[in-house]
Nucleic acid binder design. Structure first.
Lengths: 156, 156
DNA sequence: TAGGACGTTGGAGTGCGCTCCAGGCAAGCG
DNA sequence: CGCTTGCCTGGAGCGCACTCCAACGTCCTA
């Protein structure tokens, strides 16, 4: 709680803002993917992909002549958006609502935009919260760093 | 996806980074709070407060002569930290682990600091993710804004 | 033609973070 | 004295977002 705050002399290498492992890139020139390919590309499980379809978060997926799902690039685009929305903490039910608006056609542009703007506000609030939390964490980290340093001096 | 991106001419008033409703301030000069007072101060339910204690997220709370909980300012401080950690998405089990380290005394300074630094990394990653998401949302919002404007022109 | 990998379905199960319930005790009030 | 209000307990229940199961079909390769 004391200490010349804000210095963070002991910042670690994790500071670089790496945002997780990079997903395998989408091979181009292709427009029909099996469910396991999509699972690999998105990081979602095949279970989850089927579940998304059942609850209406994805519109009906194309099928092969034997009834197996064949995802298109447009489906992958949609999954990218869903992934982003999921990161915001938006409940799946709300994403389903958005999906329904998209399916309902262009008369819903206004509603879609309103939903996205409300989500945008959520994200901004969330970022602010996280920054506040970061400040608290830095204080605590410095505090413990100081305590350790003092203890080391005692020992020396 | 097209449009002169990045302009956001139609930003709304929700842009101000208000981070939720302000909690009622802690009355000073007081150091014994009933569970419902703490619930009001923290926004947690009394159920949740008792549950936190049961799972070891809070060390044993003082009791009145009739066995009712009496929280101290130190308890409220701890709940503030817990609230921050919760905002980071840290699982309750990890917070319990941190609480155990605190109870274990000063020999755990290093571990506590390591845990906080790892959490700090999580928060940085999370902020990056949210900023990426924000960019996508802004693109979409502008896109729908443009579509609506075009449609209005058609009507006019 | 056999084997194994991969896909299908409806429905049940899981883990997390609460949330609520029933039954009971203690204090304050008219 | 009864009534209300607030708190206590252990344990059951809930909503969300998956996650898995059993039983079966299909594709590919050898």
């Amino acid at each position: 709680m004391q200490t010349a705050a804000g210095t963070r002399p002991n910042a670690t290498r994790t500071d670089l803002c790496s945002a997780g492992p990079p997903r395998p890139p989408r091979p181009d020139g292709q427009d029909r993917y099996t469910i396991s390919e999509v699972a690999a590309l998105t990081g979602l499980s095949a279970h989850t992909l089927r579940w998304y379809e059942r609850i209406g978060l994805m519109s009906h997926i194309d099928r092969s002549h034997t009834g197996q799902r064949r995802y298109t690039n447009a489906d992958l685009d949609w999954l990218d958006l869903v992934g982003k929305l999921r990161l915001t903490g938006m409940p799946v039910a709300d994403m389903v609502r958005y999906a329904e608006l998209v399916r309902a056609g262009e008369s819903t542009y206004g509603q879609r935009r309103a939903l996205l703007e409300s989500t945008r506000g959520d994200v901004l609030r969330r970022i602010t919260e996280l920054r506040d939390t970061l400040a608290v964490l830095d204080l605590k980290i410095d505090f413990y760093g100081d305590l350790e340093r003092v203890r080391d001096q005692e020992v020396t």
